[in-house]
Design a binder for these strands. Structure first.
Lengths: 180, 180
DNA sequence: TCAAACATGTAACAAGTTACATGATTTG
DNA sequence: CAAATCATGTAACTTGTTACATGTTTGA
């Protein structure tokens, strides 16, 4: 399981409440690991029981008191252990791959419409990542190691979007009869 | 859920037993959808109950009798329905992304070793896909629609491996201090 | 002040994984 | 003929999803 470890990484960067973590999993971390708030709260509970994190109740002036979680020494040790461990490949599950392969047994025109929409979404997301890279990392060569890691993971997101754009374009082109 | 539908696609191409399906999910279909035999048998049972497939016991000369599954009209209708349905993005879960981002909180040298191994594996897999493409699809332009779909999904696997090779190479290069 | 949104959950269910089981069958 | 493999499963557990609950706070 890597949700625990994704949370450990995020909390190592900066302590946070459950809600703040949820927001991070909707944004930056969400680009390579998704989780809903229900999952996050459940796992936070388990991690606290296991002693990987501690919760501190922080009363706030004009907001309800929130629990802020921070990584313990045990949590840090676990994260170190996990990072050094050999990584098994993530399971592959591509719904679009299944649909493309099965197109002959369904409505190909409807699928092509869907794929055009997917291509659109991936193109938009690619632009977003390019914008974020330019805004937050104007000079990648000047980054320290930790900053470089964040930048390179964003690069991964960008390359992934390029993969999608290539694949979808190739499929759409191959199945679009040219009208002379 | 798409495992049902991946099975429907596979059985539409050709009827098969549970074991044969398992083999397909270890090979061609496995390149974009993974499933273990336990999952497959369980889902086959449910699909039979739902009337999407029928099982025919086929006694074989010198082998034990196997159950061969085939898609029913109801199964075909369901597959058509599902293919035309708008596709929600698959959840993103990249263990290596989490590790790359957390490298500062662990043993970076160990991670880089792991990543070099991953790069190796993806390079091998890329070669395999290139070999399969050359062997099975020497003339892509000559394919019919169904054949083209199979070819294009293989192309997707190839492009995916190229994504991995790019990302891993970029990460490794960025974290490899040049020795002058 | 009422409605919407926020923060923090619980419960029930579905999907996926790991470990084990059983009989037939080929092979060394 | 014993060991390994194949084909077909069952059971228990973990992870992930969907639907609901409850109190707080901000904004129209």
């Amino acid at each position: 399981m890597a949700l625990e470890h994704a949370i450990l990484v995020s909390l190592s960067e900066r302590a946070a409440s459950g809600a703040e973590l949820t927001r991070r999993f909707d944004a930056s971390i969400g680009y390579f690991w998704t989780a809903t708030h229900q999952q996050i709260y459940r796992v936070l509970g388990r991690m606290e029981t296991d002693g990987w994190i501690t919760a501190e109740s922080v009363p706030q002036p004009d907001r309800p008191t929130t629990k802020v979680y921070a990584v313990t020494a045990a949590g840090h040790a676990e994260l170190r252990r996990w990072i050094a461990e050999p990584t098994a490949p993530d399971p592959v599950r591509s719904t679009l791959g299944v649909k493309m392969r099965g197109a002959s047994y369904g409505d190909r025109a409807a699928l092509l419409d869907d794929l055009r929409h997917q291509l659109d979404e991936h193109t938009k997301r690619h632009s977003l990542y390019e914008f974020l890279a330019a805004r937050d990392f104007p000079d990648p060569a000047a980054l320290d190691d930790a900053g470089r890691d964040i930048y390179l993971v964003l690069r991964g997101g960008l390359l992934m979007e390029e993969f999608w754009i290539r694949w979808l374009t190739e499929y759409l082109d191959a199945h679009t009869k040219e009208i002379p």
